[in-house]
């Protein structure tokens, strides 16, 4: 009785608290942690050598190379766009800002398959633009440019979304001070703005990279899934899985899962060290 009376009024009874924590932990273990564990378990089902051998396969090598190429093109472009968009949106007041933000967020609400479909309709061999490009010897669909375009579409809002809330919170006073003291625009950006946003930018780039390397739906539509040529890592995972090559499929999957884990570990580390900067990132 006295214990209950001493319990803070703004918390729940210990039994309720324990139940809620238990439901949360068990739910997350079944839904999120178990799939992660199964990826590594299946990859190593026949031992380390079988897993590593499957990675040296010619198709797997070509898939890894293609995925790295696509990420190397798409991620820097997305980072430059994200910084530019965040600068324009947070440092200036202009008409139509809300519409611009909505349009930037649009790819998150569009199905990846519909995104791929849009690119096929625009650049496919049947369309006027695509047909002309094919006759010039630059096919877009079923080739690298189409895969890069689809990746850019899917990851479009990622970096901008990490930066905008943070830069709104930081305001403009520091840049204004630098400019008043005679610094040039670029100098202000490199020495004032960039150091302020670097951790959020790094996390945005990492998340963008994980998304770029892992994109499946849009790539499935635009790549044509040509083995050894336009099959990225996720597409190759699908092929291997459908051919019941479980170890090979899950080993490639484990590589991407490791990348995801590194991304999240870095985010958690950044949160611990730079809580103030990352705190502004409220939304996914």
């Amino acid at each position: 009785m006295t214990v209950a009376a001493l319990a803070p009024v703004t918390s729940e009874r210990p039994a309720v608290r324990f139940t809620l924590i238990a439901v949360a932990v068990v739910g997350m273990a079944l839904l999120v942690l178990a799939p992660l564990v199964v990826v590594f378990a299946e990859a190593l089902a026949q031992g380390w050598t079988a897993a590593l051998d499957s990675l040296s396969n010619k198709d797997a090598q070509s898939a890894i190379r293609l995925t790295l190429t696509v990420a190397a093109i798409a991620v820097p472009m997305n980072a430059i766009f994200g910084v530019a968009a965040a600068w324009a949106i947070t440092k200036f007041d202009f008409h139509g800002k809300a519409i611009l933000i909505t349009l930037i967020d649009l790819p998150f609400s569009v199905s990846p398959v519909v995104a791929g479909l849009c690119i096929v309709l625009l650049f496919g061999a049947n369309s006027s633009v695509g047909g002309w490009l094919v006759t010039q010897g630059y096919p877009v669909v079923f080739a690298l440019p189409g895969i890069v375009l689809a990746t850019l579409f899917i990851t479009f809002p990622v970096v901008a979304r990490e930066l905008i809330p943070l830069m709104i919170e930081q305001g403009r006073t520091e840049e204004e001070a630098a400019l008043t003291l005679g610094a040039s625009g670029w100098h202000t950006f490199w020495t004032v703005t960039l150091p302020n946003i670097r951790w959020a930018l790094l996390y945005g780039v990492l998340l963008c990279n994980a998304r770029a390397m892992g994109e499946f739906g849009a790539i499935a539509v635009v790549s044509g899934r040509i083995r050894g040529q336009t099959a990225t890592m996720p597409i190759t995972i699908e092929m291997l899985y459908n051919e019941y090559l479980s170890v090979a499929a899950f080993t490639l999957a484990a590589v991407l899962a490791l990348l995801a884990l590194v991304t999240l570990a870095l985010k958690t580390a950044l949160e611990l060290r730079h809580a103030d900067q990352i705190a502004a990132i409220g939304h996914p």
């Binding site: 997350m28 999120v32 942690l33 178990a34 799939p35 992660l36 199964v38 990826v39 299946e42 998340l207 994980a210 998304r211 390397m213 892992g214 994109e215 499946f216 739906g217 890592m233 996720p234 597409i235 995972i237 699908e238 899985y241 499929a249 899950f250 999957a253 991407l256 899962a257 990348l259 995801a260 884990l261 991304t263 999240l264 570990a265 985010k267 958690t268 996914p284």
Partner: peptide
């Protein structure tokens, strides 16, 4: 940190893992 995993984990990887489970 685990809450963000579905964002970072490729959908195809999640798909084959959930199916296997």
């Amino acid at each position: 940190a685990a809450v963000d995993l579905p964002f970072a984990l490729p959908t195809a990887v999640a798909g084959i893992a959930l199916t296997t489970l």
